[in-house]
Nucleic acid binder design. Structure first.
Lengths: 113, 113
DNA sequence: ACAACGTACAACCACTCGGTTGTATGTTTG
DNA sequence: CAAACATACAACCGAGTGGTTGTACGTTGT
């Protein structure tokens, strides 16, 4: 795990640590939405929602494309999978602990058997 | 997804959004460690590490048990799996979008066939 | 042309975060 | 018992977060 990976992980988890952003991500994973369409769904200013979208974009969880005056946001499922993969790596460490506990019990007096 | 779930998710992702905390979680998933043992691994005060452990504990990603004067911390793999499951749910939303795109193309002129 | 719309960003504010030091309390060891 | 150790927590501080309003600018519709 190099420094850049940790930077990306910081951005991923920080982006996901806000419920409004998680909700935005759900919507744009399910389908493309303009920023103002998203903004209408929440009880906060357009600017606040626009900043949330920008955080998700900087984290690489969402991409935008321009269509006329609208910015259409789309969720990036590959990034979501990368975050999931990190959690799986954490699980693997835990499985390593179990394996070592097995070793502890497997004090086989006759490894030949 | 009810309010309590969102609260838990906030705590999970916030706890994971710091690289020191992710590193602590890796260690305590791999095996039990006392808080002071963990603290010796990082270039910061004991109090700072103790606070990181407390954040992970409040998020339910780690549990502590007392043994004499030491507090032994252990990672909770079930919580890690719950976080992973949330990411999987996000992926499912994306697959829903693909399914709807398939519907769009499946303009079958003869559904009987 | 011009009004309305959609976006982006700056400036500001209350609050939180990640670190510090200091203090209190319980536990182990000489 | 006294000294050293492990933990917990309060108080503080600079930096960052999540929200606001205001402004600027390109696009669309009448």
């Amino acid at each position: 795990m190099n420094e850049t990976d940790e930077d990306r992980a910081d951005a991923w988890f920080h982006a996901l640590a806000d419920r409004t952003r998680r909700d935005i991500l759900r919507r744009v994973l399910a389908g493309e939405h303009s920023v103002s369409t998203l903004a209408r769904s929440y009880d906060m200013s357009f600017a606040a929602v626009q900043k949330h979208v920008a955080v998700l974009e900087r984290a690489g969880l969402l991409t935008k494309r321009r269509q006329g005056r609208e910015a259409l946001a789309s969720g990036d499922v590959e990034a979501v999978r990368s975050v999931g993969a990190m959690l799986t790596e954490l699980e693997a460490l835990w499985r390593g602990r179990i394996a070592r506990m097995d070793e502890l019990f497997a004090t086989d007096p006759d490894p030949q058997q």
